[in-house]
Design a protein around this nucleic acid. Sequence first.
DNA 1: CGTGCGCTTGACAGCTGTCAACACTTGTGG
DNA 2: CCACAAGTGTTGACAGCTGTCAAGCGCACG
Lengths: 238, 238
Amino acid sequence: MQSLITAPAMMQELHSNLRSTTLRFRAGQLIFDEGQKATRWYEVIQGTVRTCRFHMDGHRHLTGFFFSGDVFGADHGTYGTAAEAVTDVVVRCYRVGDITDDSTPKPQLDEAVSILFRAMSTAQRYLFIMGHRTASERLAAFLLCLKQQANDDPNIFVPMSRSDIADFLGLTVHTVSRTFTDLARRGLIEINGRDSVIITDNAGLCRLAGEYQDSMTPDVDTDIHPAADLCLGELSAA
Amino acid sequence: MQSLITAPAMMQELHSNLRSTTLRFRAGQLIFDEGQKATRWYEVIQGTVRTCRFHMDGHRHLTGFFFSGDVFGADHGTYGTAAEAVTDVVVRCYRVGDITDDSTPKPQLDEAVSILFRAMSTAQRYLFIMGHRTASERLAAFLLCLKQQANDDPNIFVPMSRSDIADFLGLTVHTVSRTFTDLARRGLIEINGRDSVIITDNAGLCRLAGEYQDSMTPDVDTDIHPAADLCLGELSAA
DNA sequence: CGTGCGCTTGACAGCTGTCAACACTTGTGG
DNA sequence: CCACAAGTGTTGACAGCTGTCAAGCGCACG
């Protein structure tokens, strides 16, 4: 569920060496705006943050959700997205020299590059979802990401609004809402209010999302590439 | 139209210092496979190359097209996609030390990182297209990319098959075909055989693709974010 | 000339966006 | 405490778009 842009875990190794400021934002508040000079990066201490872009046609596109421990805003030059508080949040804010700064130690630079490549790979997997998956498949993948984010607890806390989910998955609020009730009707989940979902059929949800449990092989008989894979779970990989 | 993964122009600066091998591939031939160790990167001398992934459900997803001068295959660790010749191609093949190799000069490393961030930005823009755009809007954006790739000549050469375009845009062959004829019927393009298209109404095509010519402002009256933009043309940015 | 492949087209169904209405919660003010 | 408004979420009706299925066309190749 982390950003498709950057989640440089490598920077976490520098925590002890960096001066940080703790900030609080109320739900809905802007943390930084798209296009601003990217002089700081942030770590979520408590709450949930979203990154988003607005497009000419008025559509909003959410590019990631960030939870406790996640890093966001580590962009290059200017911020490629805005960041907003989904809930009341507490974040730690670090000034950074540019990643390509001479003072950056070599191994961490290596890891940064590696992470960027992984982020690209994640983005491409996500591209596939947006291009080829239906609403219920996208929502299933999304819920599994939330579950993984919460240590695989099937009792999921959903801090973001239906509208946020819609703008993240490329759907409308209506479709998201309908799909929630549809998944519930099919016995895959149970809905407890607007911010709580229980996964009652994990295997079924995985099947929907395009993941296959255990060593189950996909039921295709054509000449599939051996390396073929689509691990939606990695959407939330750091 | 270049890869969403990597198109490190910085490496081109090293051409003169590197040993290279010239290789030829016939249309349809595999250049390298997904998952292989990424020990070389390639530059297209002549022809067109595509990079693709296969997914469990049997779907193919093309991640980029590469034309003369474009660089592909500069991945980290293993290739994230396979690369195939769309037409008969001539490529130059370079062995590379890892980008993070100690011998890589600092400025070029900086540029590599910068390019990676830009690629991420491009991927996110592309994500938006996949999530929010209709078939005709996608095809319009695609054709404009092809046009830009060919020095803005409105007489476009389309080397790839309808199937390739479909798997790149997240559509089916049928929809791509129907959309081609639809654009022609609306007077935006003229189709000359399967591999040649003339753009007869550039402004109209731009409007469709979500780009606005000149200083035309989008006709929305809601509280649009000031930094809002969607420049599909940058899809083909290096 | 026959075959195979890619491209096109039509009919149809399914999914999702749009429009509309309503329920529920929250906050404000009387 | 109630009335009211605003925001969010849900649901239904409907239309439009796109995938699926099916058929046919044109071209390249043997």
